[in-house]
Design a protein around this nucleic acid. Structure first.
Lengths: 149, 149
DNA sequence: GCTCAACTTGAAGGATGCTTGAAGTCCCGC
DNA sequence: GCGGGACTTCAAGCATCCTTCAAGTTGAGC
């Protein structure tokens, strides 16, 4: 209920004030202003920031996170239903990330078996199951989202 | 056996020539020069680049990848033993990444249960098991490697 | 032996995710 | 009511991971 200054919010959220202003400029968090033009944050902003930081560690961009947070109410505290919506929306995304890493791990293992002597058949060089059919080369390795070349 | 020009390598590896030069400047790949100062790459460089791109998708920095590749021979093709060394070295790193994402996913789920009404007890806000003991706040969220603030 | 795409270096530019600094204003405790 | 720490904006800087450009050189095919 007592609104937080940007300094208090930063301290409690474990981020720098500059980061919070940056998030605000990107629409990830919002604030009201005092008559003297200073920012005041709701307690619920703490949870938003916790969410942002956690999602970042998983490799999601601020744009992706902003998109997810846009489905949540800006002003009021989050409810069970809000979290549920977000949780179900993100599950596939997180599962996909996990699967991606597991594939790399398993491919490293299988490369031990195959001896990695043939690029065409090496699983590591051909991340997609159908990639081997695209012809020779290690092609078709896109780093999250944007396509190479 | 026939060495590759940077253009051929780029095409077969599915990356831009500029990226390959950048990797070379960072010591991730190496080349020999023709009498006219043009780069020529070994076939094995294709595998190195495939490895680099795959590792990047998992969220590893070029520095981390360079460190791993430094343990591999630069000039000759990779052997079973080389892959084995690398695979065993990276397994813990990959498992750690997976675990991290699974934790976020599970915390999102458990937040549905807890209603997320208390920041102190919310698992999402307190990623480390002992973080709740550090006092109020969502603190202690470090984005891969470097600590916030 | 000429042509022209492919190559060379070096510097600058760009996206992301911030931090740092300057120059000034607010507001809380004494 | 004032001192000083916390706040404001805006611009620039920084690390990573490249791309793009300029200006010139190489080399494979005809």
């Amino acid at each position: 209920m007592t609104p937080l200054t940007i300094g208090h919010l930063a301290e409690r959220a474990g981020v720098a004030t500059s980061a919070i202003r940056f998030y605000e400029s990107r629409g990830l968090v919002s604030s009201v202003r005092t008559t003297g033009n200073q920012r005041r944050y709701e307690q619920s902003t703490l949870r938003r920031i916790a969410f942002i930081r956690t999602a970042q560690r998983v490799g999601l961009s601020l744009d992706e996170i902003a998109e997810a947070l846009d489905t949540l109410p800006d002003g009021r505290a989050l409810t069970k239903a809000d979290w549920h919506r977000l949780s179900t929306a993100w599950r596939p995304r997180l599962d996909e990330q996990i699967e991606r890493i597991e594939r790399l791990r398993d491919r490293l293992d299988s490369c031990i078996g195959c001896g990695c002597l043939s690029l065409r058949t090496c699983a590591l060089s051909n991340p997609g199951d159908e990639a081997a059919a695209r012809g020779p080369g290690a092609a078709f390795l896109e780093p999250h989202g944007r396509r190479a070349r």
